[in-house]
């Protein structure tokens, strides 16, 4: 617990410094943030083009796909903004600068995650939020209840935590394979692309895999299906629609364990 507080404090200090530095070049920041927003908007453009040819995809309307897209993209955007720089760890191990982090009084995880904090990545978050808000206004025939309204922010935050855990696991994996940073892209950016689309278009095995192995289905599919009043293709019991926060917590615990194991390995072998 003390470690967590020290980590959060150190993270905050380093992030604050980078944000200050970024803000000395406001114009440049605005341009790159906008560029990030447009970049991530490209895959939404592809979805829009798809829906110019059809009214439904896998039985889902454009607005329904928009809800899936908006939630998962906002979640990934948040995780990417806060922890995206963790994938630099392989480079730091290879060039030996990892050691300089270990002699500072702040947990290494916080130092790497905060190093060169890129505020411009807020562009992805904004783009996700814009699509999310649009989809919420465009959805038709959804019976909103207090629970389903609350489910939207819970889903976004749980999703961010799950993606964050994947970033952390990917970084921990680099303790063993220092130049395999790209593998985690399959689970983060790949997972994001996957969950932008309805689960009904994928094969059952794939859906089962991202429910039970890498629990990406909990990022948005299961809670969003509840909001939309649809059954999930695996026919899971109803309570799993609300299980995202628990799954997120379990993922984070697992990621913490992986990170500790990786760091311990590094400190015993020095490589």
């Amino acid at each position: 617990m003390a470690d967590l507080a020290a980590g959060a404090r150190g993270y905050g200090l380093i992030v604050a410094m980078w944000v200050r530095t970024t803000m000395t070049y406001r114009m440049s920041f605005a341009m790159t943030a906008l560029g990030n927003l447009l970049m991530t908007a490209a895959d939404f453009a592809a979805i829009a083009i798809m829906f110019s040819h059809t009214d439904v995809l896998g039985g889902f309307t454009f607005a329904e796909v928009g809800l899936l897209y908006g939630t998962t993209s906002t979640s990934l955007g948040l995780a990417d903004l806060l922890l995206g720089n963790l994938d630099r760890i392989g480079g730091r191990i290879r060039d030996g600068t990892m050691d300089t982090l270990l002699v500072r009084p702040v947990p290494v995880f916080a130092q790497i995650a905060a190093d060169r904090f890129a505020l411009r990545r807020i562009g992805r978050v904004l783009q996700g939020l814009i699509v999310l808000v649009w989809s919420l206004t465009a959805l038709e025939g959804v019976a909103w209840t207090p629970v389903s309204v609350l489910l939207v922010p819970v889903m976004v935050l749980s999703g961010a935590a799950i993606f964050g855990a994947v970033f952390a696991c990917g970084a921990a994996f680099q303790f063993w394979a220092t130049d395999a940073a790209e593998v985690q892209n399959s689970f983060t950016y790949g997972g994001n692309t996957l969950t932008q689309y309805p689960p009904t278009i994928f094969s059952k095995e794939l859906v089962r895999g991202v429910t039970f192995v890498v629990p990406l289905a909990f990022v948005n599919w299961l809670p969003a299906l509840h909001i939309l009043g649809r059954d999930d293709p695996l026919g899971l019991p109803g309570w799993v629609d609300f299980a995202s926060p628990l799954v997120a917590a379990a993922c984070c615990a697992l990621a913490g364990l992986a990170w500790r194991t990786g760091l311990r390995g590094y400190r015993s072998t020095g490589s």
């Binding site: 940073a181 790209e182 593998v183 790949g190 794939l206």
Partner: peptide, 29 residues
């Protein structure tokens, strides 16, 4: 080598995801 392997893995994963979305779209049209 590891980067090449990682790249192959990522390309394959994205290929699968895109392939399913294309099947859904070509199913409709």
């Amino acid at each position: 080598r590891a980067a090449t392997f990682a790249g192959v893995f990522t390309n394959t994963v994205f290929g699968f995801i895109l392939a399913y979305t294309f099947i859904a779209l070509w199913h409709e049209r």
